[in-house]
């Protein structure tokens, strides 16, 4: 799974810490989300998308399984 969190974060000038505070998670969680190394719950994905004024579909790119 790839994400566009970093791109959207840059758009709104948010640091990882700012986004983590907005969403109410630890900074490492944002870091792992950005790297695509954590599959968030639907609620967290929704909260992050809302904090970045976008949708889950725009933020998370799901690759087709081979």
């Amino acid at each position: 799974m790839k994400t566009r969190i970093k791109e959207f974060r840059a758009k709104y000038n948010f640091t990882q810490e700012d986004l983590a505070r907005k969403v109410g998670v630890r900074r490492e969680t944002i870091l792992f989300l950005e790297k695509g190394k954590y599959n968030p719950s639907l609620k967290l994905a929704h909260d992050v998308a809302r904090a970045l004024k976008t949708t889950i579909d725009e933020l998370f790119i799901f690759e087709k399984r081979k």
């Binding site: 810490e17 983590a20 505070r21 109410g24 998670v25 630890r26 969680t29 968030p40 719950s41």
Partner: peptide
Amino acid sequence: KDMKKGFPLQDERS
């Protein structure tokens, strides 16, 4: 350190 910065001690990933 995290509490001082306003982060939760635990979240869904931890």
